[in-house]
């Protein structure tokens, strides 16, 4: 398999007046050619910081303090801003959460998308650029594409603005598209349209997608592999079916139990995960999820669990998978033995 993206032991921190916020604390994963991978987690889990580290777009005091990010085999950590600009947009592009604020309100949308083309190919004439933008607008299904080039962002609805953002991201046919909660600000009906669109452009262009979201439903619709993040670490990694059917981390299990599905018995209470996420200035010494985990043992509070492999492409950071873990009251041991 061909790795588009290879992240090794990435550490990213923000230096604030109250201390170093260790937002990402050693994350390793790969993205293969043409696959769509989901990164799931709640706010503060480090999922967005991971994607911004890949893009080298960390704001203000954010620094990659360790690890490596390889895109198409080339190391990105340590590249100059100028070198990074030739890669951004061309090899890796990003769609942001808020289509309202990520477009410039003073510049017509056609020009904003055209700028992306221009910055990577200065030889393109204005007419050629406009023709390409019309093609892109048609590809993202903006109706009457040729007439919308001169429109300003405020003349578009939220869903249409997100289409413009997607057109911009696709302009230079990137190998990897990072989508950071691209549908969170949108209504379900529009979210559905955007997800369909992303599926179809992926099929057309064969690129890889890294999809960052807190919504397990969206992941189920779009991704083939999932990373579950918590407290700056990848807690579980598995293919889409195993994550939902054979989760091997209490956090993943908790996430799944806390969303009602449409067949939920209404008399039954939802099972929330008690407590709240850890403080990343002083991350817990042990497993970051231990204070909220119903199965936590003493070792969980003291020592960070290593990554346990539990089958083809399935791994989990949980002491319950250790050889010495007790088997009574252990939800993961029983499950593992139950497997053929």
């Amino acid at each position: 398999m061909e790795h588009i993206l290879e992240v090794q032991d990435l550490h990213t921190s923000f230096l604030t007046s109250s201390g170093e916020v260790k937002a990402v604390r050693g994350v390793s994963f790969t993205v293969e050619k043409g696959e769509s991978i989901g990164i799931v987690g709640e706010s503060g889990s480090g999922k967005s910081v991971t994607s911004l580290s890949v893009m080298q777009l960390l704001a203000g005091t954010g620094r990659i303090v360790g690890g490596s990010v390889k895109l198409n085999g080339r190391e990105l950590v340590g590249l100059s801003a100028k070198e990074m600009r030739t890669i951004r947009g061309k090899e890796v592009a990003m769609i942001f959460q808020d289509p309202m604020t990520s477009l410039n309100p003073l510049i017509p949308v056609g020009e904003q998308v055209g700028e992306m083309l221009w910055s990577h190919d200065k030889a393109l004439s204005k007419a050629e650029r406009e023709a390409r933008v019309v093609d892109l607008f048609q590809m993202v299904r903006i109706p009457e594409a040729d007439k919308r080039l001169k429109s300003f962002p405020h003349e578009f609805s939220g869903g249409m603005r997100q289409r413009v953002m997607i057109a911009m991201a696709l302009a230079c046919k990137p190998d990897l598209l990072i989508a950071d909660e691209p549908t969170t600000a949108l209504d379900v009906s529009i979210q559905d349209q955007i997800l369909k669109l992303m599926r179809s452009v992926q099929k057309e262009m064969g690129m890889s997608i890294m999809f960052i979201t807190h919504d397990l439903g969206v992941v189920a619709e779009l991704c083939s592999r999932v990373l579950v993040m918590y407290g700056g670490l990848i807690m579980e990694e598995a293919n889409i079916f195993d994550i939902f059917e054979q989760p091997l981390h209490p956090y993943t299990m908790g996430l799944i139990a806390s969303i009602p599905d449409l067949n939920q018995d209404k008399k039954k209470r939802l099972q929330p995960i008690i407590g709240s996420p850890p403080d990343m200035i002083h991350p817990p010494a042990g497993c970051p999820f231990a204070p909220r985990c119903p199965y936590a043992c003493r070792i969980c509070l003291e020592e960070l669990p290593p990554v346990f492999r539990a089958g083809e492409g399935h791994s989990s950071r949980c002491w319950l998978l250790d050889e010495d873990a007790p088997s009574t009251g252990n939800p993961l041991k029983n499950r593992k033995e139950g497997q053929p």
Partner: peptide, 9 residues
Amino acid sequence: SSIPVPNPR
């Protein structure tokens, strides 16, 4: 029918 279903199958 627009609601994403948290069930991959």
